[in-house]
């Protein structure tokens, strides 16, 4: 019931759908239903069709619907499992589940790897890291010389690329991320621990007993 283009109310969703999504994620049935309230809010902010478009994700994250951002593109692509240009509720739940405080660290590390493996080659390469650092500098209006940028990237690869083949494999990324847990701080959203009490306005609409 989540992937139709019709507007939906959580009450129109079958308990089996909520239960299935709860089963496929770290969330309880009530939490899935509470997250549906958040999803509805996000998915009607620009185009009221019950799907999150990139502009709507951008509006939620940047408070502005327009403007290119490499990281926004990557986050959107990872949420959009079906690669059809929109985020459906089911995809929203699957992706947010990785950000649950109780999700295994390996899942978080894997998600971050896929985020940074821009060209999906199975490796994070220096050109990709350079592109991402350039993007964050642009986003934050910081200016660094090419020389400094090269130094930062070289230092990072000296630390992360343990077999010195010039690229970071998933195994190397795993070891590197475990050594530098601050890199994963964005991968956990404490809000998700108990979304029904963190957002009391959502409770009104939850009616399924866990």
């Amino acid at each position: 019931c989540f992937d139709s283009r019709r507007r939906q109310s959580p009450r129109s969703c079958q308990h089996a759908d909520l239960a299935r999504l709860a089963h496929e994620s770290r969330f309880s049935v009530n939490e899935v239903e509470a997250l549906y309230e958040l999803f509805k809010k996000l998915s009607c902010s620009i185009i009221d069709d019950g799907l999150i478009h990139k502009e709507e994700l951008r509006l939620a994250l940047f408070q502005a619907p327009y403007g290119e951002n490499l990281f926004l593109d990557r986050v959107f692509d990872l949420f959009d499992e079906k690669k059809n240009g929109v985020i459906e509720f089911e995809e929203f739940i699957h992706a947010l589940s990785v950000f649950h405080p109780y999700a295994p660290i390996e899942e978080k590390i894997d998600f971050a790897f896929r985020l940074y493996d821009l060209r999906q080659t199975g490796f994070i390469e220096p050109e990709e890291v350079r592109e991402m650092v350039a993007a964050i500098l642009k986003e934050s209006d910081m200016i660094l010389s090419d020389e400094l940028l090269t130094m930062i990237i070289d230092k990072t690869f000296a630390d992360a690329d343990s077999d010195k083949d010039g690229k970071i494999s998933k195994e190397e990324w795993m070891a590197y991320a475990l050594k530098h847990p601050t890199l994963l701080k964005n991968m956990t959203l404490p809000y998700l621990k108990d979304v029904t009490t963190a957002f009391p306005s959502f409770i009104f609409n939850t009616e399924v007993e866990d």
Partner: peptide, 25 residues
Amino acid sequence: QPTSMNAFELISMSRALDLGNLFEE
């Protein structure tokens, strides 16, 4: 000091990577 940071620390500062913003009213 950006030079003392690793590249991924810099990258993780992107607002797009802070999904906590989705929950802001």
